[in-house]
Design a protein around this nucleic acid. Structure first.
Lengths: 274, 274
DNA sequence: TTGCTCCTCACGTCACGTGAGGTGGC
DNA sequence: TTGCTCCTCACGTCACGTGAGGTGGC
């Protein structure tokens, strides 16, 4: 029989931990002195404690461990639980790898550029997005601006929700000069109606696919400086060993009411990555 | 200006999170309506929020982020903090890798053996341990038993602390038949005195080196079945891709008073691994 | 009037760590 | 008597999640 301190030292755990396991009923001392309340542990309890510690190490919570100790569990049941834990551990591992890469790329950035980034790249996931949009091929930046402004004007006719935002998707796969763009409005609720706008153009209902991981950056203005955030996000993607996994999106966070607001608007650039 | 819900949706965070950051002073709304208490966020605050999220992703706690946002921090200071974070992330990564290996080896064990292990391998670290011991070369198991019993008897003379335990270290490096053993008592306090015991043997003061990672298992008895826990721990070490990094230790968890208690004793087997 | 969004408490989370204040055994 | 170990509360941790109960604006 060991007192709690000796038992704790042998097993490399804290006395608090043993008292806590006692309280939970996970591992009750073999004997408790009536008068002093002292806990006494038998050597037989060391394998029991080790069993708890081993399960904890496999990622089980104390709540999950309790039934595993009490009820005799079948190997196939345990296998099933371990498979779940493996999936969890794999996700956690991937997350840690990503974190480490992010840290290292930030350090490398300081070492090469010598300064702190002006832009912050943030990863997020996006849901499927119902939209009203048109597809257009533009050969100049001016043409893009005109098309976007037309869609913006058209969008003001609907106004179904304040949260609906103007967006542009670059569908360019090849290196051609022409820009293959999708321009439209995201909707809070899906719609089936077409929407005729100026210049004989029509917005058709559709949707943007959900994306699990998006690298995003927020920039203000669409002027000549617009390449900067793009190269920032590009450098980030490269430094973190990601690959671009789909067409780039630009989301106008503020309502676009005309050319001037278009040029000064806050835009979120999104790159699907993996 | 956005209401909290819109702003939260754009940034992919919860409204609770934004209120929490407001409370901490990390990100206060650009404007709060006096009468309703409604929080209003400006688009300018999106980059600020992104900066917080990016730092969080690098492993900074909210408490650490606050000064980073307020005080202009120099690149070299930031570099230093990131280096610390990298070390942390690396440790966490290693831990996740080990956890995943442990889970997978348990699954593999169920698949090959078809049952749940009778022994639980637990990893721990051990401190440096002052000892009183002798080195002996034994050519038979009986000889080992005699030597251990002699040391056990001798150990009863000292009795400086209840926590002092009998141990055996196998120093065998090669495949020779003879066993090169160190047998002795661990001490709570270092001692400089030699201790003469029976058969003209002498216990000399020394110490066992600290070990960062020890794979341990507890077995009862030192009889013919004793190879089982050894093969269990060996299989575990192999399945988890570890390598043995030093001599194996056996620690007697109960006091040894004679041959009978020696044979039935609970023993912890320790293998240094990496 | 009915939804929808917002507000402010305030408790819960997970596995203990860390005192505070007090007692038993050598 | 002095250390040492043990005891029982009870608060703190970290970054929010999750109601409860109530109000403002269309």
């Amino acid at each position: 029989m060991f007192r709690i301190g000796e038992f704790a030292q042998i097993a490399q755990v804290s006395t608090r931990q043993l008292r806590f396991y006692d309280e939970l009923g996970l591992l009750q001392p073999a004997h408790i002195d009536r008068t002093t309340g002292y806990r006494f542990y038998s050597v037989k309890q060391l394998p029991q404690l080790n069993s708890i510690l081993a399960l904890k190490d496999l990622g089980f919570s104390l709540d999950e461990i309790a039934p595993l100790l009490k009820d005799a569990i079948s190997p196939s049941e345990l296998r099933g639980m371990l498979t779940l834990k493996r999936a969890e551990a794999l996700r956690a591992l991937k997350a840690e790898e990503a974190r480490l890469r992010h840290i290292e790329s930030r350090i490398a950035q300081i070492d090469t550029v010598g300064a702190i980034a002006g832009y912050d790249v943030v990863t997020k996931s996006v849901e499927v997005m119902p939209v009203l949009s048109l597809r257009a091929t533009c050969s100049s930046f001016d043409e893009v601006v005109r098309a976007v402004c037309s869609v913006a004007e058209g969008g003001r006719q609907i106004r179904p929700g304040l949260r609906d935002k103007l967006f542009v998707v670059s569908h360019n796969e090849d290196e051609s000069e022409d820009l293959d763009l999708e321009i439209g409005y995201s909707l809070t609720r899906a719609s089936n109606a077409n929407l005729k706008i100026a210049d004989g153009l029509v917005l058709l209902p559709g949707k943007l696919a959900p994306v699990e991981t998006m690298a995003t950056i927020v920039r203000q203005g669409t002027n000549v400086e617009s390449h900067k955030p793009f190269s920032a996000i590009g450098a980030w993607i490269e430094a973190n060993n990601y690959a671009i996994a789909g067409p780039c999106r630009e989301l106008f966070l503020e309502p676009v009411t005309g050319l001037s607001s278009f040029e000064g608007a806050l835009v979120e650039i999104q790159f699907p990555i993996r």
